[in-house]
Simulated assay, not measured.
Amino acid sequence: MTPGLKNICIYGAGALGGTLAARLAEGLGEQVCVSVIARGAHLEKIRENGLQLHVAGEDKPSVVAVTATDNPADLPKQDLIITGMKGHQLPAAAEGIATLLSTHSRVVMVLNGIPWWYFHGDEKSERADHRLPELDPGNRLWDAVGPERVIGCVAYQGAEVVEPSVIRLPVRGRFILGEPSGDISADLTAISDLLTRAGVNIIQTADIRGEIWSKLMGNASFNPISALTRALSDRIVAEPALLGLMSRVMTEVHGIATALGHPPAQTVAERLKEAMTIGPHPTSMLQDLLARKPLEYVPLVDTVVRLAHMTGTPVPALETILALIGELDRQNRADAG
Rank of each mutant, 00 (worst) to 15 (best):
321 I>F: 10
179 E>S: 09
31 Q>N: 13
29 G>L: 02
43 L>R: 06
87 G>P: 09
315 V>N: 04
278 I>V: 04
209 R>G: 06
43 L>T: 02
279 G>E: 02
222 F>M: 13
214 S>P: 12
117 W>H: 12
75 L>R: 06
5 L>H: 06
276 M>F: 07
298 V>W: 04
212 I>R: 08
17 G>Q: 07
260 L>H: 03
161 V>M: 13
240 P>M: 10
7 N>P: 06
171 V>Q: 15
11 Y>V: 08
331 Q>H: 15
40 G>N: 14
285 M>R: 09
151 I>V: 13
120 H>N: 06
147 P>N: 09
116 W>G: 00
276 M>H: 08
260 L>K: 02
51 L>Y: 12
91 P>R: 05
10 I>D: 01
131 R>S: 15
168 R>Q: 13
240 P>Y: 11
188 L>M: 15
225 I>Y: 05
269 A>T: 10
24 L>P: 07
247 S>T: 14
304 V>T: 05
31 Q>L: 05
291 A>Q: 10
24 L>C: 01
300 L>C: 05
137 P>C: 03
255 G>H: 04
115 P>K: 06
222 F>L: 13
235 R>C: 02
45 K>T: 03
262 H>F: 02
6 K>T: 11
202 I>D: 09
65 A>E: 10
259 A>R: 11
210 G>A: 07
126 E>K: 15
273 K>F: 14
170 P>Q: 09
294 P>R: 09
25 A>H: 11
291 A>S: 14
100 L>D: 01
44 E>F: 01
282 P>W: 03
100 L>H: 02
66 V>C: 07
309 H>E: 08
87 G>S: 14
234 D>G: 08
286 L>D: 00
189 T>V: 14
202 I>Q: 13
36 V>C: 09
93 A>Y: 11
75 L>Y: 03
231 A>H: 01
151 I>C: 00
255 G>Y: 01
223 N>Y: 10
183 D>M: 11
278 I>C: 04
221 S>P: 06
142 W>E: 03
230 R>S: 14
177 L>S: 03
140 R>P: 00
271 R>G: 08
66 V>S: 07
333 R>P: 08
86 K>P: 03
190 A>E: 06
311 T>H: 08
52 Q>K: 12
335 D>A: 13
5 L>Y: 00
272 L>P: 06
186 A>M: 15
40 G>S: 15
184 I>E: 10
100 L>I: 00
251 T>V: 00
24 L>N: 04
256 I>H: 08
238 A>M: 08
43 L>N: 07
333 R>G: 10
39 R>H: 08
231 A>I: 04
305 V>C: 00
316 P>H: 01
317 A>H: 02
264 P>I: 04
142 W>Q: 02
82 I>F: 11
225 I>V: 12
135 L>W: 07
26 E>W: 05
221 S>R: 03
135 L>M: 01
249 V>W: 09
213 W>C: 06
260 L>W: 04
